[in-house]
Write a protein that binds this DNA or RNA. Structure first.
Lengths: 233, 233
DNA sequence: ACAGTAGCCATACGCTGTATGATTTCTGTA
DNA sequence: TACAGAAATCATACAGCGTATGGCTACTGT
C-alpha cells in the first residue's frame, strides 16, 4: 500500500529512484484483498486505486485493463495450489482423491473469486495446465491409457468446477436444506415430480443437513469407482 | 416488438385500451434474443428498451431490476427443458444418461446465458427442482436408497454444470486441442509436469481433436459406472 | 362522476472503465 | 556530462451504465 486512502491530489510525474512504486504484484495483491473482503463487485478500478493511494489511470501502466486484473487474480489462485510430491506408497485411488481435494481447496480459498476463475479460460489455461499433473500421475500409475487418462481427468475437473460453483453461491460449509428443500418440494404442482417428492420426504425423516465436504467426498468416490470399473480393475 | 429501434421521443402517459403493451413475457423474450445473438454484455437496460421501442424506465414497471431480468431468463432456459415421460422398458442406466443429455441440451441451447444461469441460484432454485425428477426416477428404479439418490443426483448435476461451463467458454462443438495444448505443454518448465508431458505427447500421436459430445458421454458413463458399482450391482 | 392506480416517458444522478495528454524523472548512449 | 527517449505518474474528460424521482395520461372500480 503506497499511499492508501488519500483523497487529495498527488504529485504528477515519475516517482524518484528510491521511492515506492506500483507494480503488477502489489496491484494484484490489493485487488485480491478487496475481492476477498468486500466481494467481486466492490473491485472497481477506482476502488483499487484508492486503496493503493494512487490515481486510477496509474494502474493501466502495469495491467492493460480490468479483465487483466481478474486474469491475474485467477493466476494467483492457482499458484496457491500446493501439489503434494509423488507418493507411490499410497493407492492411486487415494492419490487421485488427494489431488481432487487440493484442487478444490485452492478454488475454495477465495470463494468470491470462484465464479470469475472458473469462467475466465484465457487466464486459467496457462497456469491450470500444471495443476493437473497429480491427476495424470495417479491415473498413469493405475495403468490407464493416454486417452482414458485424458477423459477421466477432464471428468474429474469438470465435476470439481460444478461442485465449486454450487458451493460458492451458498455461504457456509453446511446449510439446512430441510426447511428450504422440503417446503419447496411440498408446494410443487401435485403430479409433477412424484418420485422426487417421495424420496425427499423419506430423506427428511433421517438426516436433513447437507454437508459440502461430505458431498464432495461422495462425488469423488463415485468418480473414482467409475474409473476403476472402466479400467477393468 | 412494440416500436422497435425508434429514436425520437414517444407519447407520454398510459397507452389506450387496445394498444400493444409491454409485458414481462415480451420483455424477457426480447432480452433472450439479445443475449443469444449479441452476447450477455450487450444486454443492457437501454439496449433492451430500444429493441422494444420503449423508454428504459418502462421496463421497471414489469421487472424490478436488471438482475430480475436475468433471473427470468434462467427460468426460461429451464422451462424449455423437455423431460421425457417415464419409460420402464429401458435400463435405468440409459434413463439416467438420457436425463443428463436433456439437461445439458437445455443449458447448451443458450450458451451465452450458461454462466449466468449456473451462477444465479435464486432464479434456478424454484424451477430446477422439477427438472431433476427424471434422475430421481431412474435411480429409484435402480433400487438406490434416498440418501444415495440424493448424493448421486447432486454429483451428476455438478458434473453437468462444470462441463457446460467449460463448453460455454469455447465456441464450437469440437476444437483442435492439438496445436494449443501441445505447444503449451511443450513450453512448460522442464521437470514440472513429466507425466502430463509424456501422456499428452502420446495422445498427440493418435487422435487430436476434442469432441465435446464424446467428452460428455464419456463423463456420464464414468459416473453411471461409479453409481452402479457403489450400489453393488 | 370521480378517485386511484397502472403504465408510460423525461430528466437526472452517481457510478463505471478507460482514452488522451501533460508532467516529471529515470535510463542509455554520445 | 549532455541529452533523447522511455517510464511512471496524475488530471481531465467522455460515453455508457443502472435506476431514483416525478410528471403525464388513460384505464378501472365505486
Amino acid at each position: 500500500m503506497v499511499n492508501a486512502g488519500k483523497p487529495g491530489p498527488g504529485r504528477t510525474g515519475r516517482p524518484r529512484a528510491g521511492e515506492e512504486r506500483l507494480s503488477r504484484q502489489t496491484i494484484l495483491e490489493a485487488a485480491l484483498r478487496i475481492v476477498d473482503t468486500e466481494g467481486i463487485e466492490a473491485m472497481t478500478m477506482r476502488r483499487l486505486a484508492s486503496t493503493l493511494g494512487v490515481n486510477p489511470m496509474s494502474i493501466y501502466h502495469h495491467l492493460p485493463n480490468k479483465a487483466a486484473v481478474f486474469a491475474g487474480l485467477a493466476e494467483l489462485v492457482f499458484a496457491e495450489l500446493e501439489s503434494s510430491p509423488p507418493d507411490d506408497s499410497i493407492r492411486w485411488q487415494d492419490e487421485l482423491k488427494g489431488a481432487a481435494a487440493a484442487y478444490r481447496d485452492a478454488l475454495r480459498a477465495h470463494p468470491n473469486l470462484a465464479l470469475q476463475v472458473l469462467s475466465d479460460t484465457s487466464a486459467v489455461s496457462d497456469v491450470v495446465v500444471v495443476t493437473v499433473e497429480p491427476f495424470y500421475r495417479a491415473l498413469d500409475r493405475a495403468g490407464a491409457k493416454p486417452r482414458q487418462i485424458f477423459e477421466a481427468v477432464n471428468t474429474i475437473i469438470d465435476f470439481i468446477h460444478g461442485f465449486t460453483l454450487g458451493e460458492a453461491s451458498v455461504r457456509s460449509d453446511t446449510f439446512e436444506l430441510a426447511p428450504d428443500l422440503l417446503t419447496r418440494v411440498a408446494t410443487l404442482p401435485p403430479g409433477k415430480a412424484p418420485t422426487l417428492v417421495r424420496v425427499v420426504s423419506e430423506l427428511g425423516t433421517e438426516g436433513l443437513a447437507y454437508d459440502f465436504n461430505d458431498g464432495f467426498t461422495t462425488g469423488i468416490a463415485v468418480l473414482v469407482a467409475g474409473i476403476e470399473s472402466q479400467l477393468g480393475l
